[in-house]
């Protein structure tokens, strides 16, 4: 047994032990533990307010934690004040609201991190940024300002901006929530490509079909706890817990209409 397992034991990219977080006395994350391995894509789903976004924000120190431990490749990172920026360089994050810098064009948005945070040369960073923009089909937008882009284009730029830092892990926080279906598709295909390239990711989303397509593992959260965990196929086909079944319960509008007394 030991020999069989030995070659496969790898340090997880991210490990969270017994994380607790509360806002003004109400517990938002209640004893969360999870590990994410190299190249693994973990999708976190659950009802609004279940704590999934807060979980991502705790990982890169945007929210301080009450107790528990967070490790990035063996190094403990929770509560780190000194050199927090060095930790964050290894954790990419993309938000629902894109948060491109409005006073910089697309290329400057992409270059800021690699040049200022990583100290790379402009020539070097530009070459990589151009190649990355091309991959997501936005070569012609290099010198556009964010306000001149559609939501889907902005979000693709935001993803590229995060990946150009070559993070150990990428956190995606409801990145399609503000987009129409067409834009959702273009953004999700970029994420699928990243998954194929082996990017380690933790994704919070309400796009169930995307979750099923991209995830190696699904975490279902409710009330600040991980209620259920499983492989995507099994989870979506037959969730084990009643709570997850209720959450996933699809309906037809006919059913709804019949339910409403006229």
């Amino acid at each position: 047994m030991a020999i069989k397992g030995a070659g496969r034991v790898k340090t997880p990219v991210l490990r969270i032990d017994n994380l607790v977080k509360s806002f003004d006395g109400s517990v938002v994350l209640n004893d969360i533990s999870l590990t994410i391995g190299e190249g693994e894509v973990v999708v976190i789903i659950g009802p609004s307010g279940c704590g999934k976004s807060t979980l991502l924000r705790c990982v890169n120190g945007l929210e301080p934690v009450d107790s528990g431990e967070i490790y990035l490749r063996d190094a403990r990172i929770d509560g780190q004040k000194k050199n927090l920026h060095l930790v964050r360089q290894k954790i990419g994050m993309v938000f629902q609201s894109y948060d491109l810098f409005p006073h910089m064009d697309v290329m400057d948005n992409l270059l800021l991190g690699p040049m200022r945070a990583l100290g790379r040369t402009k020539q070097d960073a530009t070459a990589e940024a151009e190649a990355a923009l091309k991959r997501v089909g936005l070569s012609d937008k290099a010198h556009a300002l964010p306000r001149q882009l559609s939501g889907g284009q902005k979000q693709r730029v935001a993803i590229v901006r995060a990946t150009l830092m070559h993070p150990d892990i990428l956190l995606l926080d409801e990145i399609t929530a503000a987009l129409d279906p067409e834009m959702v598709r273009e953004v999700l295909s970029v994420v699928l490509d990243l998954a194929k390239d082996g990017m380690t990711m933790a994704i919070v989303t309400h796009e169930m079909r995307f979750a099923e397509a991209v995830a190696d593992r699904i975490l279902f959260m409710d009330g600040g706890s991980i209620v259920e965990e499983g492989k995507p196929k099994a989870f979506f086909a037959s969730p084990e817990t009643a709570r997850a079944r209720k959450f996933l319960n699809t309906f037809t509008y006919e059913e709804l209409r019949e339910g409403i007394p006229t």
Binding site: N60, G61, L62, H85, L86, V87, R88, Q89, K90, I91, G92, M93, F95, S97, D99, L100, F101, L112, G113, R116, A117, L118, R161, A162, M165
Partner: peptide
Amino acid sequence: KTQVEAGECLGLTNAQNIRYV
């Protein structure tokens, strides 16, 4: 506030975040 967070997430130091973002 999210602009500052975006800068932080890129791993900028506080001084860089103030200056560029």
